[in-house]
Design a protein around this nucleic acid. Structure first.
Lengths: 132, 132
DNA sequence: TCACAATATGCCGCTTGCGGAATATGCCTC
DNA sequence: GAGGCATATTCCGCAAGCGGCATATTGTGA
């Protein structure tokens, strides 16, 4: 999605930027954000793709949510995480940087997510509402 | 300066990005980077504009230098800090965000720097080689 | 109401960051 | 080479981040 499509104001305070960068300065959180760029996901799928313990994924998602880098909604037992509907310009710019990032782990994550998606599309092994 | 003028590769590793964001996620460091966008500066001038203790300024500059967000050269007694000659795309993008940032402190800093520059241009109260 | 599934929270130990006081380093001048 | 200036480094104490274990919360379905 080109940056111009984001309607949020370009101008923010310095502390807004600090909060953004606090969210971005961890490898696991960058992996989560990279995955969410392909669409909303529930925690269990993020956990499966990252192959990290549930508590670790949950805490990092909470950290991102506190700082407005992701949003979440509950759907039954599941909590769906997504990128904000109208991200700030700075967030959008850094998500674009993340898309350009050539990193073996991010690449592997993307592949694992794609496999997960096709697997769920065929045989619904998961009750997650994203894959009805 | 438009982003397109930066020749550095767009692609970096995830850890490169983490190191960048570690440098960016502090208010004092954002103030330093904002000031350096108007050109190289020695520590004493940065310290004067920020009105912060010398050790604090020096440590944050060291932190930025370790992560490649600034470069430094010694000139006699003075050490001149500047933004990298060829910043990464991600750094350039975030410096642009910083320029768009409307923040009272950043604004005050910019004004203080301008006053300092004109003062030094008139009567050379400072031996700093940047103002010969 | 009970068991279960998905997710979050509290606590602990470890590491890192941050600010400040004191001290060290490097360079210049006399 | 002694003294002074600009800057960096070393400790210290404190706060915050991070990972893991255990446990709590919230919702679902029988």
């Amino acid at each position: 999605m080109p940056l111009a499509e984001y309607a949020s104001p370009r101008t923010v305070s310095a502390m807004d930027l600090v909060r953004l960068y606090e969210g971005l300065c961890d490898r696991t959180r960058l992996r989560l954000l990279a995955l969410l760029q392909s669409g909303p996901l529930c925690v269990c799928h993020l956990q499966e793709v990252l192959d990290e313990p549930q508590v670790k994924v949950s805490k990092h998602l909470g950290y991102l949510r506190e700082r407005g880098l992701v949003e979440s909604t509950r759907e039954g037992n599941w909590i769906i995480y997504r990128l904000p509907a109208t991200p700030t310009f700075a967030l959008a710019a850094n998500l674009a940087c993340l898309r350009d990032c050539t990193d073996p782990t991010l690449h592997r994550d993307a592949q694992r997510l794609q496999k997960l998606r096709t697997r769920l599309a065929k045989a619904k092994h998961c009750a997650c509402p994203l894959h009805d």
